[in-house]
Structure formats: structure tokens, C-alpha cells
Design a protein around this nucleic acid. Structure first.
Lengths: 219, 219
DNA sequence: GTCTATATTTGGATAGAC
DNA sequence: GTCTATCCAAATATAGAC
């Protein structure tokens, strides 16, 4: 019994140290860029020498994999699905806001999770499963507001990815494309659900994009 | 006179060699990834030793810069603007097709031109000017079909970038998002120009995405 | 578990002969 | 202009002492 207790304590300590290492790696990635992360710097950040890291991870790629899993898990944890109302416009808007903010608030995380920027790195099956779960739950939510066609879902991901990508690439730290989300979602939902219900819905929605803020200089 | 002629020939030869080096660098980037390009490999590809490259470029970043300029110039050269008709739907569709194909047919080029994947590299003013010219001409074309609002243009770039990004990241070599372009453009143009002109335009367009190809399994 | 020491590889870049 | 030789730095990873 005492032995088991000791083992548990040791295992807990070990997991805590691993988490500390991954946290340090993320901090470095955010500060210096994902590709600039080195074992030396990680070790220095946690008060170790580089070789000591091999007591916790078998290779640098294993650290990347743990980072990947952590990032994907963060997406799960902050999911906005208790805010869903069943109204398509509101719910889709809410989801896209969440996705774009999640991507643009941490570019390094975005690159590791959604781009292929680390040469030779691929997430393990376990880590990748977290990501696939995210996509599946997203599909469920879209289905709940009546969007079930695979092509419609692909268009949704393209729209979200495009807004996030432009925000990150062309206005990092700003909100130039974030401010477009509501209009983009209006366009999408309108196209998906049909606008025939409202006699003249185009007047208002078109104005939002073509007449409003015409004088506003984009960054 | 003879001296000038000799100088010209030498200059031409020099430019030809520089072009050869940049071509080799691009070939390596496409084969091994942008970050995996090394001076040694470039030199080997053109039949030189690594230090000889410094007779043509002052640093590796200068080679990246020349690659950037070449990629941006390729975008100019293949521009589809002699195919413009003045019809918004047709022209926008044509432009998006061009952009998405340009991006997805060469991922290394896409990464260098549109993502920030090389740590510490920024294009020179001259190279960047080519890119800005591209964006400006794109804006002119959109204006010609009545899309002038900065926000509308931003939404256009987001939509194009999103389709290209998803195509590259999730279906490289395929056409899963390329096949969505026509629908995406219909959605966009419909939202921009207003659908009030057509009594019931939503029936057809909605069907395209929600009912058509429902059984088609996405990759 | 952590360290020091080191192997190994691979880069970019420079010096100087030819 | 191109070469050989070399420098220097940085990175991953391993061996073995403590």
C-alpha cells in the first residue's frame, strides 16, 4: 500500500514536471516562434540542462506532440456550446467568433494545430483524435441549426479559416477581420437557410457591407 | 563600345546564373519544404560549392527575397484579367479560381508569399512592392464589378484565403474546396450585389449547397 | 533524475589561393 | 568566379558518473 502510494506521488510529480516542460515550450514558441524552440531553451526555462528533458520525452517531436495535444485540449475546454440557443444566425456567429479568436490570440498554437510548419512532425494518433473530436462536435452543432450537408460544412470551415488567416497574417493583434465576422456569418446563414422568409432582407444586409463604414480606412 | 558590349554580356550571364540559383532553390523548397532549403543543397543543384553562391547573393535571406520576388511576379504574369467580362458573378468566380489554384498548386510558394514561416525573413521593399501591386490590381478589378467597399474587399480576401488554406491543409493535391468555389462566389456576389432583382433566387442557389451532392462523400 | 561531457550533424558565413 | 579549407554556432541526442 505504501509502495503504491509512493508510486502515485512519483507519477503525479512526473506528470507535473512534464506539464511544466510543455508550458515552457509553449511560452518559448509564443515568444520566439514555433520553429525557434530548442531543447536548450526549454531546459533553461525550467531550470534543467537539455539532456535532462530526455527523462520525460523521448525526442523533440514528442514534446511537439504534447504541445499539440495541449493546444487541441484548450480548444475543447473553451468551447462555447453552452451559449448555443438554437438560432442559426446567433449560434453560427458565436462559433465563428470563437474559432477566429482562438486562432488569432495565439499564432504559434494556430501554426502547430492547423498549419504544417514543423518539418517532419505529425501528431500522434492520440493527439490527432482530440482534434478530430473537435471537428466532429463542431459538425454536430451545425447540424443542430440545420446545416448538415458536407459541402456546407466545408464552406463553413473555409470561411472561418479565411477570416482567421487574414486576421493573423495581415492584422496581427488588431481586429480588422474580426469585425467582419458578423457580416460574413450573415452572408453564410442567409445563403444556407434561404432568405425567402424575409421579403426584403437584402436591403439591410447589403448596406452593412457596401455602404456602412465606407470612409473607414482599413489598416 | 566593345567594352560595354562585354560588360552587357557579363551582366546577362550573371543574371542568368542568379535566375538558375533561384530556380534551384524553388525546386528544393517544393521537394523538401521551404525551411529545409540549405545553401549547400542549392549549390549542389547548380553544380557549385556553397561559398560560390556568395558571389551572387549576400546572404541566404537575399536568396529568399529573390524567391519571393519571383513568386510574386508569377502571380502577375498569370493574371486572368483578359478573361474579365464585366459580369460580377463570372469575374469574381474567375479571380477566386485563379487565386486558389495559384496557392494550392505550389504550397512552398504559398507559404513564402502569404504566411510567415521563415523566422527572421521579411521581403525587401522592392519585392514587397510587387505583392502590393497585385493586391491593388485585384482591388481595381473588384471595383470594376461594383465592389469598392474596403470591408467587402477584406471579406473577399478572407473567402479566397480560406478556400485556398483548407484546400492546401486538408486536401493537398485534391479538389475538395476547389469544387466549392462557384458556390462560395455565388454566396458572396449574391450578398454583395443584392438578390432583390430576382424574385426567388434562393431556391436554386440554396439547392446547390444543401441538396446537391448530399451523398457525395467528402475526402 | 540530473548532471557533465561529448558525439554528431548541419547550418551559414569567411579567408585566401588560383 | 570558383574553389578548398575552415570557422563558428546551434541543434539533437547519447554515454556514463553521481
Amino acid at each position: 500500500m505504501i509502495e503504491t502510494a509512493n508510486r502515485d506521488r512519483r507519477a503525479e510529480r512526473r506528470e507535473a514536471t512534464k506539464a511544466e516542460i510543455v508550458d515552457a515550450a509553449w511560452a518559448l514558441a509564443r515568444a520566439e516562434g514555433l520553429a525557434a524552440v530548442s531543447l536548450r531553451d526549454i531546459a533553461k526555462a525550467v531550470g534543467m540542462q537539455a539532456p535532462s528533458l530526455y527523462g520525460y520525452f523521448g525526442s523533440k517531436h514528442e514534446i511537439y506532440d504534447a504541445m499539440f495535444a495541449m493546444g487541441a485540449q484548450q480548444f475543447v475546454d473553451a468551447e462555447p456550446w453552452d451559449e448555443m440557443t438554437g438560432d442559426a444566425l446567433h449560434d453560427v456567429r458565436c462559433i465563428v467568433h470563437y474559432v477566429v479568436r482562438f486562432c488569432s490570440e495565439d499564432i504559434a498554437r494556430y501554426q502547430l494545430l492547423f498549419q504544417r510548419t514543423i518539418p517532419g512532425f505529425e501528431p500522434s494518433a492520440a493527439s490527432f483524435a482530440i482534434s478530430e473530436g473537435n471537428l466532429a462536435r463542431l459538425g454536430e452543432q451545425l447540424a443542430r441549426v440545420g446545416i448538415t450537408d458536407p459541402r456546407a460544412i466545408d464552406l463553413f470551415t473555409a470561411l472561418s479559416a479565411g477570416l482567421a488567416n487574414q486576421q493573423i497574417s495581415n492584422d496581427p493583434g488588431g481586429d480588422r477581420w474580426i469585425r467582419l465576422i458578423d457580416d460574413a456569418v450573415a452572408m453564410y446563414v442567409q445563403y444556407m437557410t434561404g432568405v425567402g422568409e424575409d421579403p426584403q432582407p437584402t436591403d439591410r444586409s447589403t448596406d452593412q457591407l457596401t455602404d456602412q463604414r465606407t470612409g473607414g480606412a482599413p489598416r
